[in-house]
């Protein structure tokens, strides 16, 4: 059995009351927590201690705690999700990754596209709006043909699956010095562009989603690759190249 060690850390966390308010850092010392505690559980412990002291707890988004819902969104020690080698979300980060006595700085996603709601909770509804602009195939419920009527080569299906793995957490935007949402948009466009079901609307989709992305004020991609370096689901900028291709093709055909 591997026995857990206990460590003590200082959490330096961002407090902000609303999108327009000025924020600041608070600190809290966490003593002797087992290192097999997850980082979010450590924050739970911190909040319990804050509540006990009669203070307001630190607000952050989290939900499934299995790395799939995309809700958690903390910028930890200078990287989104506190980047581990393999690629994981904030909720999959464990205290054994930190050193005893370390100060852990926790910040919200900082981007004009994601205004802060409170503390480290940000508003990512812009992503929904981009999907609403065209991130789908238009089909009516119950009218689809037999699933095996369209054969899809395994390679294409697998690649589409990789693109579809995006959890919409927004780490790409948070890490990008341009506040660009290209990795997110391109992953959706790629998934559907790779599958025969998505082809009929491919041109329309690429144009509509890029237009919406621009309208919402996300930045222009300058290929710095910061997004793919921090993506917890290992989306790559090959998707961005595909989006560019789909978009240019669509525009040239207009």
């Amino acid at each position: 059995m591997i026995m857990a060690k206990n460590i003590s850390v200082t959490i330096k966390f961002w407090k902000q009351n609303g999108p327009k308010e000025k924020g600041h850092f608070d600190t809290h010392e966490l003593k002797n927590i087992p290192d097999d505690t997850s980082f979010l559980e450590a924050l739970d412990i911190m909040n319990e201690e804050l509540i006990e002291a009669g203070k307001e707890p630190f607000v952050f988004d989290h939900d499934c705690r299995e790395g799939i819902c995309g809700m958690c969104s903390l910028y930890i020690n200078g990287t989104p999700h506190g980047k581990t080698e393999r690629g994981a979300t904030t909720c999959q980060l464990y205290m054994r990754r930190f050193k005893n006595g370390e100060t852990i700085t926790v910040e919200p996603w900082r981007s004009a596209g994601f205004p802060v709601i409170k503390d480290c909770m940000v508003d990512r509804s812009a992503f929904d709006k981009i999907i609403q602009a065209g991130g789908y195939t238009t089909i009516r419920t119950g009218q689809a043909q037999d699933a095996n009527a369209i054969l899809i080569p395994k390679q294409d299906a697998d690649e589409a699956m990789d693109c579809a793995s995006c959890i919409g957490c927004g780490a790409c935007v948070a890490a990008c010095k341009n506040g660009s949402a290209m990795l997110f948009v391109s992953s959706k466009v790629s998934q559907l562009a790779l599958l025969p079901q998505g082809r009929p609307e491919a041109a329309k989709r690429a144009k509509a989603m890029v237009a919406k992305m621009d309208e919402l004020g996300f930045g222009n991609c300058t290929n710095t690759r910061a997004c793919e370096a921090v993506c917890p689901k290992n989306e790559t900028i090959a998707n961005i190249a595909r989006l560019n291709r789909e978009f240019i093709k669509a525009k040239l055909a207009d």
């Binding site: 789908y136 195939t137 689809a144 043909q145 037999d146 699933a147 299906a157 579809a164 079901q197």
Partner: peptide, 12 residues
């Protein structure tokens, strides 16, 4: 059928 038509990338 519905999900495949939506572009759900089931294993193949």
């Amino acid at each position: 059928d519905q999900c495949v038509a939506q572009g759900v990338p089931f294993a193949r």
